[in-house]
Nucleic acid binder design. Sequence first.
DNA 1: GCCAACGTTGGC
DNA 2: GCCAACGTTGGC
Length: 151
Amino acid sequence: MNYWLMKSEPNDYSIDDLASEKKASWDGVRNYQARNFMRDDMRVGDKVFFYHSNANPPAIVGLAAVCRESHPDITAFDKNDSHFDPKSKKGNPTWFLVDIQFVKKYKAPVTLTELKSDKKLQGMRLLQRGQRLSVMPIEEKYGKYLETLLK
DNA sequence: GCCAACGTTGGC
DNA sequence: GCCAACGTTGGC
């Protein structure tokens, strides 16, 4: 079992949206590194910290779990979708995604400021400067510690 | 293959 | 709204 962190702008898709829908296909990712994590490395049962970016405040707000492994992101095939990508072909898709299911919403989210000031989390990928990946692995030592922090 | 221009992310 | 960091595009 591995830990991951996925970012979403709450205006776009929030933890409350996931809580009401129960499951979501993580579509629209158009970054190769993030795609590779979803396509190659994420397994059913992996834990996913749900992070609100471009939020006030930015924070880890909930927990999800991978419930379906890699499959093509069909929004790339849809001309009318904002994530349409003409280079992605149905016979040879460029973009892949995983499905996640809601696990819980934290009563006390941990804000980016708190994460940054926590000595035990120094070195976490999320906290490295210029870090823009929307899907990233969380090292086990950080993942376990985060689970003790988040209620 | 280099690199300037451009677009996006995301904190502040 | 600003802007730094980063990824992608496309001319050469």
